[in-house]
């Protein structure tokens, strides 16, 4: 809806909003559909037939994006986001913000952008990964990466505000995400093997969306097991079950 308003160059007081459909999160991330709204400009001079339909993103922070979706659906979602901004502009703005924040914090570190490569980098979801390297940066990672997750979240909000789009960047500190991805992939492999041997399902510890996504993708081609996310919010976790 925000996008519709921006396209029309109006604010909420100048339009009438009609909800066409509420949108669904879909089951396990499949078959979800965005909410549709129709935005009618009201009484701001002559504007014949200026009515558009805008899909509203069902989930701004991508919480439910952890399930790998069929390519077709993913493409549609991508297209709905509208023109992608120049990724160089996104990267430059992100590096500026990160450097400013580190500067204020009096943290001495190298900040380098690179293209995302692996699922853990958010390949296909982010336009760049900003690597922060330096001594004693554990502070920026926090317990189980919680501080790093907050850092990345806030930087992306600031970027969205600055560039008026939903382009995302990943932030990594001292290769933490790389190492975490590696250990998650190993864990996925070991647990899938256990499921195959025993025929019993295994449920992993609760994980954030990006980590669940790494597990789903790691096992997506396995002939022996399937993965689903179960539970809500912070308790959401991946279950690995035998493929039947």
């Amino acid at each position: 809806m925000d996008r519709a308003l921006r396209q029309l160059g109006l604010d909420e007081s100048q339009v009438e909003i009609e909800i066409l459909s509420q949108g669904r999160a879909g089951i396990l991330g499949f078959g979800g559909e965005p909410a549709r709204v129709r935005v009618h400009p009201i009484d701001t001079g002559p504007q014949p037939g200026n009515i558009r339909e805008e899909p509203e993103p069902e989930d701004e922070d991508g919480e439910e994006d952890d399930e790998p979706q069929p390519a077709a659906i993913r493409r549609v979602h991508r297209a709905e986001r509208g023109p992608r901004p120049d990724s160089d502009a996104v990267t430059t703005a992100a590096v500026d913000i990160v450097e400013d924040l580190l500067d204020i914090l009096d943290i001495d570190a190298d900040v380098n952008p690179r293209p995302p490569v692996t699922p853990g980098d958010g390949a296909g979801m982010v336009s760049a990964v900003i690597d922060i390297e330096g001594d004693d940066l554990g502070l920026l990672i926090g317990r189980r990466g919680e501080t790093l997750a907050s850092f990345q979240y806030v930087i992306n909000l600031m970027l969205a505000r600055k560039l008026h789009n939903k382009a995302l960047v990943g932030i990594d500190v001292g290769g933490y995400r790389r190492r975490r991805e590696e250990s998650l992939r190993n864990l996925a492999g070991r647990m899938a093997e256990r499921v195959r041997m025993t025929g019993q399902s295994v449920t992993l510890e609760p994980m954030p969306p990006n980590e669940r996504r790494i597990i789903h993708i790691a096992l997506s081609e396995s002939p022996h097991v399937v993965t689903v996310s179960i539970g809500e919010g912070d308790a959401r976790k991946v279950a690995i079950t035998p493929r039947r």
Partner: peptide
């Protein structure tokens, strides 16, 4: 309160510094 929560997480870094 998700943004407030993230802000508080980050401010802890500054406080520790």
């Amino acid at each position: 309160g998700r943004i407030a929560h993230a802000l508080r997480n980050l401010i802890k870094v500054a406080a520790m510094q």
